[in-house]
Nucleic acid binder design. Structure first.
Length: 251
DNA sequence: AACTGTTCCAACCGCTGCCTG
DNA sequence: CCAGGCAGCGGTTGGAACAGT
């Protein structure tokens, strides 16, 4: 990585989706621009430039700052890495809880979720969701186990990781399934919909919130009592794992 | 040691909406 | 109203690092 990469004119033309002027603009914009991982020197240049001149135009800035990068690349690097007050490292339990709540409410609107988590970027949250949360919570429907520590956002040790991989399912990590509620019980508890309904409406890739989902009935609007019930599903389990147990029982 | 598979995340791509002339 | 430019967003990808065989 890190090699200077020159856009081939034919490669750009081949795409054939842009107007002539747009194609030429892209060619000139991308010719001999560096791509891939940023070097410490590049980071320093961008940081120093923005510190001195501020952000004015992402497309013009790279040249002014002496960088062989596209404006888009600079913007992304600044927003996701160099910006002051960026929080790096593992997500706290509280942050994970917030992400889950907000995702339930907002769907894949990562920037909106990031706005509620100071120091965290939309990209980081999106990555965390896709790698740590989504897989565990939504694709495990056919599985009967929920690996609690991962769901809770608690970093696992290498030993822990080894243990999980070496044994199919470690009993100590399983969460005891709670009492399964039927649709009526769900509505009487104040939940917006039953897991079955929820799962049928849920789209992990959709950027729009779940349809027919009343804003006032989101997690944050639930009463303490109900939150307590939810947490008994294994800290702060989701509709996904909820659903999973229902499926198991339905067989 | 060498190879293969998996995980994770930084960075890229393409689309959309806003703004301006 | 329209076209072009720009910033921002969300989905996707590439590859480094690590684990397993």
């Amino acid at each position: 990585m890190g090699a200077v990469w020159c856009f081939k004119r034919e490669e750009v033309k081949r795409r054939n989706r842009f107007s002539r002027s747009e194609t030429m603009r892209r060619i000139s914009q991308n010719l001999c621009l560096k791509r891939g991982t940023w070097s410490p020197d590049e980071d320093h240049k961008l940081r120093a430039y923005i510190k001195r001149h501020g952000i004015w135009n992402w497309n013009e800035m790279p040249q002014a700052a002496g960088l062989l990068r596209s404006g888009k690349s600079c913007r992304l690097r600044w927003m996701n890495y160099l910006r002051p007050n960026i929080k790096r490292g593992n997500f706290s339990k509280e942050e994970v809880r917030t992400i889950i709540k907000l995702h339930e409410k907002l769907g894949n609107r990562w920037s909106a979720i990031a706005a509620k988590l100071p120091g965290r970027t939309d990209n980081e949250i999106k990555n965390h969701w896709n790698t740590h949360l989504k897989g565990r919570l939504y694709s495990n429907i056919s599985n009967t186990a929920v690996l609690a520590p991962k769901v809770q956002g608690v970093p696992i040790s290498k030993e822990e990781s080894k243990k999980r991989k070496s044994s199919d399912i470690d009993a100590s990590l399983l969460i005891t399934a709670p009492k399964i509620l039927n649709s009526e019980e769900y509505s009487s508890k104040g939940f917006p919909m039953s897991p079955i309904q929820s799962a049928s409406n849920f789209s992990s890739s959709s950027s729009t919130p779940v349809s027919d989902f009343n804003e006032n009935q989101t997690w944050s609007g639930l009463e303490e009592e109900n939150l307590g019930l939810l947490e008994s599903f294994g800290e702060f389990s989701l509709w996904g794992s909820h659903f999973q147990w229902k499926v198991k029982c339905a067989r």
